[in-house]
Design a protein around this nucleic acid. Structure first.
Length: 293
DNA sequence: CGCATCCCCTGCCTGC
DNA sequence: TGCAGGCAGGGGATGC
């Protein structure tokens, strides 16, 4: 999927269209995404006004004027596009550069002022759900989510407590959404490279026996926050097959330090290592064995 | 409970 | 050029 920075960028693109807008109609063209749509999904949204569009981890969270909440997850391949009458797609919102076949347009939200917001998702790993604002934190999809990687509350002490005693790898621990909510495969690889830590190392091994935070964990927390903040600032385009509506590719042009760079020299100036690909939990890991220990 | 594996689904890329 | 196989941003279900 779009990872957290991409979801945040999508949120910022949709916000001006959806916030304050009345939903005049909802079309569900294909009901079998990752999970079935809630009962009477379209009816429950129609006529509502969107009072706010937020984000929690990789979920878009739309508040409605009756206290209900629309949760949207983009899965691996979900994207939105905006169409207004007599206007091209709105810059700043990602859409797929390829494969954005109308066959995969699964949901269309029509607003009172004539805009259409279409959800497209070829792989159908995305989904939508309804909740209520009052119970949002207790909702099954939200309840177990861990800390956001965007703020200062992600620090060494928190990671120490979360990693203490864990035999699982640092890579797997950082992908665990109940610890840090919103990190995905790309940014975990990048953050571990920035922190100089091996993804293969046991998570518990970076915590002292007393469970006290280490300097390593301080570097890791800082690296995670920095990687995410940089990607959001750059417009979140980590995905080569996403473009902004003006055609620019954004952040992907930077490429990454290690992600998808197997065999390339490690970009750290003082390092002579070569980026290596391994598989952890069935997913690719990229790291430099020379400077990530 | 912690942890690893498998799977959902479609499209793109590589190699034969 | 066609086709088979591998791989992809996520994360829930299952089984040890």
């Amino acid at each position: 999927m779009p990872e957290l920075p991409e979801v945040e960028t999508v949120r910022r693109g949709l916000q001006p269209v959806l916030e304050g807008a009345r939903i005049s109609a909802v079309t569900v063209r294909r009901p079998d995404l990752r999970f079935p749509f809630p009962e009477r999904f379209a009816e429950r949204l129609t006529g509502r006004t969107v009072t706010g569009l937020g984000r929690r981890a990789k979920y878009l969270v739309g508040d409605l004027d009756d206290g209900s909440v629309l949760l949207m997850h983009l899965g691996m391949s979900g994207s939105f596009r905006i169409e207004r009458p007599g206007e091209a797609e709105t810059p700043g919102v990602f859409h797929r550069a390829r494969g954005k076949d109308a066959a995969h347009d699964h949901v269309v939200f029509h607003t009172g002022d004539g805009a259409a917001v279409t959800y497209n998702d070829p792989r159908r790993f995305g989904f939508m759900a309804l909740a209520t604002r009052a119970d949002l934190d207790r909702h099954p999809l939200m309840r177990h989510l861990g800390r956001e990687p965007t703020g200062n509350d992600l620090d060494a002490a928190f990671l120490a407590a979360a990693f203490a005693g864990k035999a699982t790898s640092l890579k797997a621990a950082l992908l665990d959404q109940t610890i840090v909510a919103g990190l995905g495969n790309i940014y975990v690889c990048e953050a571990l490279w920035r922190a100089g830590l091996s993804p293969l190392r046991a998570a518990g091994s970076v915590v002292t026996k007393a469970g006290a935070p280490t300097a390593r964990l301080g570097r890791l927390a800082e690296a995670i926050r920095a990687v995410i903040a940089d990607a959001i600032a750059a417009g979140g385009s980590s995905l080569r097959d996403y473009v902004q509506a003006d055609g620019s590719l954004g952040y992907f042009q930077h490429r990454f330090a290690v992600y998808d760079r197997e065999g390339d020299p490690c970009p750290r100036p003082t390092c002579a290592g070569v980026v290596r690909r391994t598989v952890q939990s069935g997913r690719s890991t990229f790291h430099c064995p020379a400077c990530q220990r």
